[in-house]
Computed example of a mutant assay.
Amino acid sequence: MRSQGQVRFIRISSRSQKIAAGVAVCVLGAWCASVGALALSQVSTGTAQAALAGREAKVARAEHSVEQYRENIDTVASDLARRQKFIEQMVDAHISDLPESTEAAQPEAADETGAKVKKISALMPEAGALARIEAAQIAMVDRLTRYADTRSRAASDAIRSLGLNPNAIRTSARTAEGGPLVKLVTSGDGSVDPRFRRMGQSLARMGALENGLASIPQVSPAHVAYVSSSYGYRSDPFTGSAAFHAGLDFPGPMGSPIYAAAKGRVTFVGQKSGYGNCVEVSHGNGLMTRYGHLSGFRAHVGQKVDAGALIAAMGSTGRSTGSHLHFEVRVNDRPVNPRPFLEAAQTAQSNLQNNNQPQKERS
């Protein structure tokens, strides 16, 4: 260091340099910490503001819902009455009696509905009763939807066990429809609540599948102890040569009652070559049953019959060696073996009835 013509030397030791560097680092660290704390404070403030805004939005929505109840309490009551009528119509049309045991609603939906009822009851006690009625209706709709879906699955499984396609049966059930338009409106603005629409669709699907199952041959056409001739190849009773037998032969006394194997519509009453006096019953979905060698008729063309309904009397008309019933099951006019068909249908019906019984009856 030069000063007034003199040169002086200043020495800084390593220890002093380290101390100075440490001080500088501390100062810099303190500055960074203060900047970070400021930034963190700003982020926290923004998060708190966002949370506050979210709470305010929820409160606003709750207040809006309550305000709707307050301003339109008469409309809400009218909507609830329409909804109740809708539920009663669906139950009467598809179930007759309310199920005693069905699955509970989804917890999320129940929590949401319960929270709404609490808010409305707390902020506007006079609307609390309506809110509780609405919640009960929604819970019932959910239960009925689940109940119908359970029965639909059982019917589908039963139909599938018979080798038939449940979707084809359900589709064919809608080949002929009509009638005046009667809208099922469940709110004052003319819209249908999607939960109610879903319930209606589930009940309609259940009805179509169960009606289709009921149309499958499932009742023995004659009350006899045994079958004298089975389905398939046999020795012809007249020629003795190998021949194909397209049904089952039920032997019995002349005039024994003959019953419809399933519900359907009588499509033929008269004589057919080889069958003699014959009755045919169409059950839909391509299914038809044929009853041959009859001595008399107890039904007419176009008549709707239930499973087990009396349709004819046993005889020995046509190509026959004695009093018996020749019974055929045909799918799309192709003969199939009736024996496993009837056995499987009876088992499927038994399983379906067990599945449809209330839980406490089966326990």
Rank of each mutant, 00 (worst) to 15 (best):
R70P: 00
S156R: 14
Q84S: 11
A62D: 15
Q89P: 01
S121T: 15
D74C: 00
R132M: 14
A105H: 04
F86S: 14
A48N: 07
K85C: 02
I87N: 02
A135K: 09
D142Q: 15
T150V: 06
A129M: 14
L28R: 00
S96A: 04
A154N: 14
A122M: 06
S156V: 02
Q106D: 15
H94P: 00
R70M: 08
S101L: 05
I87Y: 02
P166C: 01
V66W: 08
A81D: 09
E103G: 09
L144C: 02
A60I: 05
S96E: 15
L123C: 04
L98W: 15
I133S: 13
R151C: 12
T47A: 02
W31S: 01
K119F: 06
V43Q: 11
R170Q: 12
Q68L: 04
A81W: 00
T47F: 08
D111N: 06
A122Y: 11
T75A: 08
R143D: 13
K116V: 03
P99N: 07
R132H: 12
I120H: 11
A129T: 12
V66D: 07
T150C: 02
G163W: 10
R70V: 11
S96P: 00
E108T: 11
A60C: 04
Y147V: 01
A154V: 02
V43C: 01
G54D: 12
D142L: 08
T171Y: 05
G36M: 08
A37N: 05
A148S: 14
E71M: 09
R70L: 13
A39P: 01
T75N: 03
E100T: 10
P125I: 00
E71K: 12
D157F: 07
R160F: 00
L164Q: 08
A37C: 07
R82S: 07
E67N: 15
I133G: 04
D97F: 05
E56H: 05
P107M: 07
I138S: 14
D149T: 15
L164P: 01
V76N: 03
S101Y: 11
T150D: 05
I73Q: 13
A129S: 13
R143P: 02
G29R: 00
Q106G: 12
E112Q: 11
A48G: 01
Q68F: 04
E56Y: 03
